[in-house]
Design a protein around this nucleic acid. Structure first.
Lengths: 199, 199, 199, 199
DNA sequence: CCTTAAACGAGACGGTACGTCCTGTCTTCGT
DNA sequence: ACGAAGACAGGACGTACCGTCTCGTTTAAGG
C-alpha cells in the first residue's frame, strides 16, 4: 500500500507553490541560509505553514525546489556546450565561466545553502544528482564524446571520471575556500585533464 | 579597549573542556549532526551551558574542536606517507585507504557534520584549512617532492594542483554520493593524476 | 434582504444529521468534552466539515443538539412526576433519583460538557432553558400545584423559587464537587424546602 | 520519588509572575474568556511562553491564580460579615449585595471564565473550594453560628446546608441566566432560608 | 424521465494557537 | 571565586483545528 493518505496533487494551488518558492529564494538572498525558517517563508509568501508541510517533507526540500524552479526556467532542455572543434579552447571558455560564476557573491549564497542541505540529507542529494547535476553533466559529456570522435580525447576514457578531474578541484576550492578561482586556475585544470586523458 | 572581559585561559577547567569535546563526539555519532544542540552537549557533559558559551563562539566551533582533539591524538606531528620509491604504488595504497575510510559509516557522520558547518562559516573553514587540512597536505606534498627528485613527477608541477586532482574527485563523490568509492576508482584517479603530471 | 442564501431545510440529509449527533455523543463520552473538535466529529461521522457548518452555528450548538436528541427520545411530551398524594415521599423519591443520576459517571461527562458551553454562551443558555429545562420544570411544577391544592404547600408559594431551593443546592454541589450527593442529602433538601414553603 | 525535576521555586521571578497574572486579568476583561490564549498572555506580559508553562499546568490554572491574587489583595484574612444582632436584616444586606455583584458586567466576565474552567477540571475545582470559596464560607458560617447562639437559627442546623439553600439558587440563576437577580429575589431567598431553619 | 440545482464527501487553503525545544544571557547557590 | 544548575525572553518547530473555499458526486424536485 504505497502512498496511503498522500495529498491530492490535482487540488494543489499553483499560486501558493509559486509564492513559496519565490519567497524562499528571496529570503536566502536577503538574510542568508541559516535564517531561512519555514515560518519566515510562510509569512513572506502569505501562506499557512501547513501548506508548506503538506507538500514538502523538510526545509531542505523547499530550498531545493526553489532552485529547481530557477534552473528549469533557465536551462530548460536544449542545454548545450560550445563546440568549435577545438576541445581545449571550448573547455577553457566553459571552465573560466564556471570559476567566475562561483566567485559571484550573488550566486554563492544560495549554492552554499543548497550544499549545506545536501551534505546531511541523502534523499536530497539523490534529487540533486538527478534533477540538477545530471542534465548539466550530460551536456558536458556530449561535448566530450564529440571530442572523442574528433580524436582529441582518448576513445576509452571514462567520461564521468574526466568530468570529475575537471570540475571537482574547482568545486572543492570553492567549498573550502582553499584558494582563488582565477582564469589561470581554470586553464591549469583543463591542461591537466587533457594531459591525463589525451588519446 | 581590546578583549575587555575575556575569560582567563589559565583558570580554564581542563576537566570540563574534555567532557564537552567528548560529549560532542558521542552525540554526533549517536543522534546525528542535526540534533547536536548546545543544550544536549552541556547536559551530557554535566556542564553548565555558560561554560560552553564562555569558551566557544558557536556550535560549529565546538564541533570543530572535538575533531581537532581527535586528530591531534592520532596524527600528531610526525605524520608521513609511505615512501617505497614507487610513487604509483605508494599513492594507490594511500588513495585506497582514503576511499575505504570515506566509505566507513563510523567515519562518515562526524565528517559530514564538520563539512556542513564549514560550508557556511568562513572562519571555521579557515581553521579547518590551517589546523586539519594543512598538516595532512604537507605530508602528502613531502611525498610528492620526493617523487619529483626521483624523476617520477614533473619537476615544475604545482603540488597543490596535483593534490586537488588526486583528492577532490574522491571528496566530491563522497560528499554528493555520486558514485561508489572502490579500490578501482582510487587506482583510476592515481593513474589519471600521474598521466597529467608525469615528467 | 431576508434569508438570502439560507440552506434549504427540505433537502437536508437526515442520515448526515443523525451521524453527526451520534458521533458527537460518542466523542464526548470517549475523549471528553475538551477534545471534541468539529474536525473530529466530521471525521467520525463520515461527513464533510461544511455539512456541520451549514446547519449549526457553533460547536456548542452541535453539542446541545446531540443532547436534545437524546432527551426527546427519552422524555418526550408526557413527562410526569409520581403523585401518590404524599408530597414529601414523592419529592424524596425524585430527589434521590436525581442525586443518583448526577453521581453516575456515564451521565456526568456529557452534562458537564453542556454546562461548560452554556456558561459563556447566552444564546445556548436560552435554548437550554426553553428546550431542556422548561419541560422538566413544568412537570415538577405540576406536581407542586397538586400539592398546593391538597394543602401540603403554601398556596401563595412562588413555584420557581421552590424548585430553585430544592434543586439548585444539588446542582451547585455537583458542579463544584463541593460535597457528596447522598440520599440523606436529598432528603435534607426536601425537608428544608417543605419547612420553608409549608402552608 | 516525588517531584523529580520540578522547577526550583526559590529562583522564580516575582516580576514575571505578577506580569503574567496582571496580563491575564486584563485580557479576560478586554477580549473575553474564550480568546485568552497562553500566547496572548505571554505577549502582553512580555514573557516567554515557557515561563508560563514552567509554573502553571494549564490555562485554567493561570486564570485561577489571577483570581486568587485579587481575592488575597481584597479579602485577606480579616473577612467578616456584618453582625447587628438582626440575622434577617444582615443576611438581606449581604444577599442583596451579592445579587448586585452578580449583575455587574465588570464582575461577570471573569467569574464566568473561572466557572467554565472549573466545570471540567476537578483539580481546579478543588483549588477553588479551598482557596476561594472556603474563606468566604467560613465568614458566613461564623455569622450563622452567632445567630444560633442568639436563638435566631436552629441550633442543630447544618450550616453548609443553610449556605447552599441561601446561595445556590442565586448562583444557578446567574449561571443559567434563568431569571433576574433583584433585591426582591434576594429577600425572598433569605425569607425562605430563615423559615426552613428557624429554631 | 431527465434536467438541474442543492447538498454532500472530501480536503486544500490562510490562519491562530498549541506545547516543546533550543538559543544566548543572566542569576543563584554550593563547593 | 568558580562553575553547575537553571530561569529568563525570545523564536522556530511541527501539529491540530479553525472557518472558508473549491472540487467532483449524489440525490431529489419539478419541468
Amino acid at each position: 500500500m504505497p502512498n496511503s493518505r498522500r495529498p491530492d496533487e490535482t487540488r494543489r494551488s499553483e499560486r501558493s507553490r509559486q509564492a513559496i518558492l519565490t519567497a524562499t529564494r528571496e529570503l536566502i538572498s536577503e538574510v542568508g541560509y541559516g535564517k531561512v525558517s519555514i515560518e519566515a517563508i510562510a509569512a513572506r509568501a502569505g501562506v499557512g505553514k501547513q501548506t508548506i508541510y503538506r507538500w514538502w517533507p523538510s526545509r531542505g526540500a523547499v530550498i531545493f525546489d526553489s532552485f529547481l524552479e530557477l534552473s528549469l526556467d533557465a536551462g530548460g532542455e536544449g542545454m548545450a556546450l560550445p563546440d568549435t572543434g577545438d576541445l581545449e579552447a571550448d573547455l577553457k571558455l566553459v571552465m573560466r565561466a564556471t570559476a567566475a560564476e562561483f566567485a559571484d557573491p550573488e550566486f554563492e549564497r544560495p549554492v552554499r545553502a543548497l550544499n549545506a542541505e545536501i551534505v546531511n540529507d541523502p534523499g536530497l542529494a539523490a534529487q540533486y544528482r538527478e534533477k540538477l547535476a545530471r542534465p548539466v553533466d550530460e551536456a558536458k559529456k556530449a561535448r566530450l564524446r564529440s571530442a572523442q570522435r574528433a580524436g582529441q580525447l582518448a576513445a576509452d576514457a571514462d567520461l564521468d571520471l574526466v568530468l570529475e578531474v575537471l570540475y571537482a578541484p574547482l568545486f572543492q576550492r570553492w567549498l573550502h575556500r582553499s584558494g582563488p578561482l582565477t582564469a589561470e586556475y581554470a586553464d591549469a585544470l583543463v591542461d591537466a585533464a587533457l594531459r591525463a586523458f589525451r588519446p
